[in-house]
């Protein structure tokens, strides 16, 4: 029997108002234990106030070899950025 506990990815929100951020991974037998292990391993120095865990095998990742087709098209869509538009200085901040 393979008695290895599955691997989990850990995401922590460091304070209210921020997003959860990936901090690393750990092994745990089940989800409850993964949360507790994450608390014990990754928040020993008050690093967080909320924890997400997800089994590593359930993460779906984009393919790095498709980097160009996935992300390059966004590069010329500069009209999505506020600096694309000219607003007279006297209008001030908009």
């Amino acid at each position: 029997m393979d008695n290895n506990w599955p691997l989990w990815e850990v995401f922590i929100r460091s304070k209210k108002g921020l997003s959860h951020k990936h901090v690393g991974s750990l092994h745990a037998a089940d989800a409850d234990m993964a949360i507790e292990n994450a608390r014990d391993v990754y928040t020993r120095r008050m690093e967080g106030e909320s924890i997400w865990v997800v089994e590593s095998k359930d993460i779906v990742a984009s393919n790095p070899s498709q980097q160009e087709e996935l992300y390059d098209p966004a590069k010329d869509k500069i009209y999505r950025h506020p600096t694309f538009y000219d607003i007279p200085d006297e209008i001030g901040h908009m």
């Binding site: 506990w5 750990l26 092994h27 745990a28 234990m33 507790e36 292990n37 014990d40 391993v41 020993r44």
Partner: peptide, 11 residues
């Protein structure tokens, strides 16, 4: 018995 639990018990 495993690093994760070693850490937990030490806490």
């Amino acid at each position: 018995p495993i690093l994760e639990q070693d850490i937990a018990l030490t806490n």
